[in-house]
Computed example of a mutant assay.
Amino acid sequence: MALEISRPKITDDQHFQRTTNSVSEHKIKRTETKKFLDRLSNTKQQHVNMKKQESWLNWEGVRQKKLSWKELWNGRYTWRHDKVLSVLADTLERSRKKPRKKKRSLRFVNFVKAGEQTTRSTVEGSGLLGTAGEWQMRADLKGRMQFPQEIAVTNQRPDIVLWSTSIKQAVLVELTMPWEERIEEAHERKRNKYQDLVADCQQQEWKMWCLPVEVRCRGFVGQSMWRALRIIGITGPERRQLIGHLSREAELASMWLWRKRNDKWTGKTDH
């Protein structure tokens, strides 16, 4: 005996209502899709506008240029260098005066990647400043700095010298503000510049640390700066804060020089 299943009949009004609902849902989805695409387009346009507004950060249209001695001695690029150097020197001076737990020597932690045979060392602990309590410091700012004669007699003037006579250790810090593509070249040039001085100091039984550091002229702080601060003993939030200050100072100084590029340099600035 076959079962008969009765299905409810759909009236014309119900069919019309279903069709209307389907059309309405389609319109809603199409409207939402259009709004999403419009928002996406506006976001892309805003990004383009922001890039144009901040195009000075990329210095669009600016060509790389090797500076002449006349331009260097003119003062404006030395001014930018010294603005960044003063930020670095101030932090090192404060850190030098902080009380630290003394350690006779630095401890190094070796890290080896999978498959590597050579090791890489990184400083652990309080850094060099933690190996003695009577560190002295000189920075080549506001006049000609004289290299400490108890270390060596020389006419060379690194940007910053940190030294301790009790443990006969010294740190040379040399800041360069190169163009982005020349950062490695600048690092090697500065390291080679002080090779003879380091060798002379080592002959006098001083343990020397030569730390060339770079802050690019558009504000990017090189990895050499991060490593140097870690070796000296500036780590954690203090290091991150200093990196931010160095980047901002370099960026502002470069922007100021760019805006005043056609003005005669007088040595007086409002920055």
Rank of each mutant, 00 (worst) to 15 (best):
L242M: 06
R261S: 06
S247P: 04
D263N: 13
W256N: 06
R261I: 12
N262S: 13
W258T: 04
I231G: 03
W258V: 01
W256M: 02
R259V: 09
D263K: 15
W256G: 05
A253Q: 01
K260S: 07
I232H: 04
E238T: 14
G236L: 02
R239T: 04
R240W: 00
W256K: 10
R248S: 13
S254K: 14
Q241L: 04
Q241V: 00
E249W: 08
L246F: 11
A250H: 07
R259K: 15
A250S: 09
I243W: 05
P237Q: 11
I232G: 02
A250L: 05
E251N: 08
M255W: 14
E251W: 11
N262Y: 04
G236N: 06
A250T: 08
E249N: 09
K260V: 00
L257Q: 10
E251G: 05
S254T: 15
M255G: 03
W256D: 04
E238G: 14
W258N: 02
R230E: 01
R240K: 12
K260T: 09
A253G: 01
L252P: 00
G236R: 07
S254G: 10
I232Q: 05
L252F: 04
H245R: 10
G244T: 08
L252K: 10
E238Q: 15
K260H: 09
R248I: 13
N262F: 06
Q241D: 12
L252C: 10
W258H: 09
S247N: 08
I232V: 11
I232N: 08
G244N: 12
L257I: 09
E251Q: 15
I231Q: 03
R240N: 08
E238N: 13
E251K: 06
I243V: 14
E251Y: 04
N262E: 06
N262P: 06
G244A: 13
I243R: 03
I231F: 01
A250P: 05
E251A: 14
G244I: 09
S254P: 00
S247F: 11
D263W: 13
H245I: 13
L257N: 07
R230M: 06
L246R: 01
L257S: 01
E251S: 14
R259E: 07
I243N: 10
L242V: 04
L252T: 13
I231R: 07
L242S: 10
R239C: 08
G236C: 04
L257A: 09
L246Y: 04
P237V: 06
R230D: 06
G233V: 03
R239N: 04
I234S: 02
I234R: 03
L257G: 11
L246K: 02
I234W: 02
R240Q: 06
A253I: 03
M255R: 15
Q241F: 01
W256A: 05
R240C: 02
R230Y: 00
N262C: 07
G233F: 05
G244S: 15
A250I: 11
W258Y: 12
R248H: 07
A253S: 12
G233H: 06
R240A: 12
A253M: 05
